[in-house]
Nucleic acid binder design. Structure first.
Lengths: 350, 350
DNA sequence: ATTAGCACTCACGGCGTTTGAGTGCTAAAT
DNA sequence: ATTTAGCACTCAAACGCCGTGAGTGCTAAT
């Protein structure tokens, strides 16, 4: 995908102009207006020929003969990879992001909720932020809290400052007298273990225990075995209604499909996961309308950036909108925000 | 509002027919087709006169001269109050509701999440369910769980089986040795108190304590004072994208406003609160497009029903959609569901 | 009091026309 | 060998002009 530029200078300039123009006006663009708008030195006829070439090569397309041209996915791709010059953030934007993310936030989920909102606000697209994977987070504190004779709440404080609560139905009650020692036992042996591996760890440790220790371990295991393994990643999504403003969603069918999808968070999370893989594989952070996206969403684009905690990538944040979007501005915003999020979360998890 | 019928028999019949017809077809209805469709014994001309009268009285309106008539808010109101005959649930619907709500659900929030989804599914409108007010719920278990030196999680299991977690920043750390006794102290003295009044209660009790007891109370108070008083009610909302199907939302402006609102949950909750008051005051459970609703939503209707726990009303559930909706069917569904929710929650909170 | 009859209204769909921004091609100019 | 002027051509969109049909209000007859 990251092929070297195979366009000559003039072709590149024309493509750049077309994409730029279309991004700002949402109107198909023709040779005459292009020349006028950008003060080009070539005549419309020349530009026309160039555009015809670009169309033949698959960078542009026409909706119908005798209407202007618009970029194809390939056209956008080339623009993003070779043509656009990233536009830095304004001071205001930078301040806004910093101000919002450096206030006192309780936990990683709080930070990411704010992030999605912030991104939506600044970019006027839909903002999203993936929460750190619940299962792979590690335990900082662990406790059991009885709700009734047969129900128990399992409380896990993880390294992102989040408190997870899970309700477990017990086969046989745990006596009140056991709870204190049990709590101590759990915190002694399980700190720093990832949530997914809690049960496995207890089981493994159990072999070397005897008597009281062993009894406690068995109690713990009875509960921890009920902790579901594969919980879906949470996703924060905000500003979706702004997408209505974009002219591409005047098409009713499309708008309906989109909003239907937004209600099924799991499917989006899934889509994100795959997107993340693609992006990582290609060392990029922009994904432009792909066929693998669910039906009705072929022309959605994603600008995303991973955030890291202690140098480890743990999730994606970014924005989502129509294929036609100001990538040059958006990459800067998303990258900067991801950077801030990384810093905030790293400090929070220490 | 609940005035006695001021329409004669024929007028009532015609109004009924108009509302019924409009509800099912979404088309303005004229005299001729009305007579044909309902096999009326009067001639179109007569019906025409009656309709003119109904219009003069404010029950019907015309979009433009020479097009059929549609019900006004007043017209719907009269229909709902005096004309419609409630249509009972089918066996399938009843089974669906029971099946979904009697499965093992962890807590009240779970039940209400399911409820909103269920209502959306059955009625093809947007379903909503208000969670029990967080502040007025009572404490069943209470515990503190340290996160770091300066942060503490406050865990409250309430009488609806929900686990609330609040993060509190401490002015000075609480020693690990104190946590055990503190926990015991809290659960001894605070069970059954409403969450809003926790701090007040500790303060009140403190006067009669000495020494160790008093010290613990002071520690507790330092934490509980940080618990925010007025948390907003949570609202579960589902199936909003279905409203797209309704022809009234082909109007783009309207659709946009609505979906914008759906993103601001607080505003909806607020609107619900006021709606609840209105409904209670008027002993009704249907609210038809009102002016007090936020702009762009003048022609939204609500069919709602309160659910009770131990005979006490704690929240509203219901559906939300365009003014033109099959009230006769929907009331039955919403009422029955509210009834089931009451039963399930009462059992759960015992 | 009801209804038949009639003139009138008005949204809607089909249809031809004009307009304007766009194209491709060819031949002349550089 | 490029570039450009010129020209014929295309096509969506806007416009106006019917004709149609479902609807109305009014009046006079039943």
């Amino acid at each position: 995908m990251n092929q070297p530029p195979d366009l000559n200078d003039r072709e590149a300039q024309v493509l750049h102009a077309v994409v730029h123009s279309y991004i700002t006006t949402a109107e198909p663009v023709g040779s005459r207006s292009l020349v006028k708008r950008f003060g080009m030195t070539w005549s419309p006829a020349t530009v026309r020929n160039v555009m015809a070439d670009l169309e033949e090569m698959g960078y542009l397309e026409q909706l119908h003969t005798s209407s202007g041209r618009i970029p194809t996915t390939k056209g956008y791709r080339y623009y993003v990879d070779h043509l656009m010059h990233v536009q830095e953030l304004t001071l205001r934007e930078r301040e806004m992001i910093e101000h919002d993310l450096t206030q006192r936030l309780n936990d990683a989920d709080d930070v990411l909720r704010h992030t999605s909102h912030l991104l939506a606000l600044i970019t006027h697209q839909a903002g999203f932020a993936e929460a750190p994977n619940g299962g792979r987070a590690t335990v900082k504190r662990l406790d059991f809290l009885p709700i009734s004779a047969e129900r128990l709440a399992v409380l896990i404080v993880d390294n992102y400052g989040r408190v997870h609560t899970l309700t477990v139905y017990l086969d046989q009650p745990i006596s009140a007298a056991d709870l204190g020692p049990l709590s101590q036992f759990l915190n002694e042996h399980l700190e720093g273990i990832s949530i997914d591996q809690l049960a496995a760890r207890v089981e493994q440790k159990m072999r070397s225990f005897w008597d009281e220790q062993r009894r406690l371990a068995e109690l713990a295991l009875a509960v921890l075995n009920h902790v579901p393994k594969q919980r879906p990643n949470q996703l924060f999504l905000d500003g979706t209604s702004q997408l209505f403003q974009q002219p591409e969603f005047k098409d009713f069918e499309k708008a309906r499909d989109m909003f239907g999808l937004f209600e099924e968070q799991d499917r989006i999370v899934d889509m994100m996961r795959r997107a993340a893989l693609d992006l990582e594989a290609e060392k990029q952070n922009i994904l432009i309308g792909r066929e693998q996206l669910p039906r009705g969403l072929e022309d959605i684009s994603l600008v995303a950036s991973p955030y890291k905690v202690d140098g480890q990538t743990v999730g994606l944040i970014g924005i989502l909108g129509p294929r036609r979007m100001p990538y040059n501005k958006l990459t800067a915003i998303v990258d900067y925000t991801a950077h801030m999020v990384s810093r905030v979360l790293t400090r929070l998890s220490s």
